[in-house]
Design a binder for these strands. Structure first.
Lengths: 187, 187
DNA sequence: CTTTTCATGTAACAAGTTACATGATTAA
DNA sequence: TTAATCATGTAACTTGTTACATGAAAAG
């Protein structure tokens, strides 16, 4: 006897996105990146298996200028499954960052211009992320009506909003760290 | 014709740790966690293959109260290989966090006490990490002699120090974020 | 007495990446 | 004309996790 098929985190992530609106596999692949990096080769088969399990369903949308696409929606059964998962404790986040290893070895090459370059590149990355998130924030605020004001916890955009806020806080901290390290490194 | 064996990030990570001192596979598994989560079942075979490639070597240390262990050291060849890698640009960090998905779905269960619990647990996790890092910081400062003063970029502990500093900044930001979210959520 | 720590390994499985495969439209 | 975007999929491979396997010492 085997119970209900158990889903992995990526699968729950797809269901999470689909609580907002319908998406194609292509769109899901793009939108899930900031939360959970994954390639289309992982998403497409997973969507197929979620559909087989009855947690999502799709409608084919015929397009003329672009290839046809499959628009996926979460089902009642998928919503229930997601609801159970939402109530459970979240696992510890896992971050894997090459730069941490390279930073740890700074005593081996701190005088090299390569060392400075690593932190300049990371600072640039943080600045780009911050710029992206600031644009997103404005977008969500506009969509929520009262511009300048923050969405409240009952707003449908509250989830999106707090995640943008988290990104802003964390990337700001990372940028400041990079700039501090650069100030400590010899020119 | 096949060139030099190419290493993955975890392998370079092990070499990075070994630039400080010798470690057993067991110790490497523990110390690498904050940088790059990995299980011993991944570390042990990787160490064996690094040794076969000549990048590390080990000496068996016989113990009486505990099981014998293999103490690994980086070789000259391993140092060269690591040096090449250090000079290369670091890939974008990858973070995978379940809580992001659950936060994104807050409109589905913001009123539930489960929602509050998720952020309370994450806040607690951040507090624990901060406490750990503060202890580490004091430890490194003590080891570096001038207590209260920060190690300079030529200190052998500079790498360890800046990583602790990064953790402090980022987990501080995450903790503040959790507390802010909790202030927005209904009791 | 039961669990944790120390210590090393392998086998089976799940998750994630890269490469292969196709093909029209549009922008540079 | 070359590259990028849109759109879906599979095959082969690498990476990472869980489970199996052993066993002594120490702490609760």
């Amino acid at each position: 006897m085997k119970g209900v098929p158990s889903l992995n985190t990526l699968a729950y992530g797809l269901l999470s996105l689909l609580t907002y609106k319908t998406y194609s596999g292509y769109e899901l692949t793009q939108h899930i990146q900031p939360f959970w990096p994954a390639k289309h080769s992982q998403i497409y088969p997973l969507l197929a298996s979620l559909e087989q399990a009855g947690y999502v369903s799709h409608k084919l949308v015929v397009q003329h200028d672009k290839p046809d696409k499959k628009m996926y929606a979460i089902t009642e059964s998928g919503s229930l499954k997601l609801g159970e998962w939402l109530a459970m404790s979240a696992a510890e986040p896992a971050t894997r960052d090459e730069l941490a290893f390279k930073a740890y070895c700074l005593h081996k090459f701190a005088k090299s211009p390569d060392a400075r370059r690593l932190f300049e590149q990371r600072a640039e990355l943080s600045r780009n992320k911050l710029q992206f998130l600031k644009a997103k924030k404005a977008e969500v605020q506009a969509r929520d009506g009262r511009s300048g004001d923050l969405p409240t916890s009952d707003s449908p955009h509250f989830g999106a909003y707090i995640l943008i806020d988290k990104g802003l806080r964390v990337f700001e901290a990372e940028l400041e760290w990079c700039e501090w390290v650069l100030s400590q490194l010899p020119e």
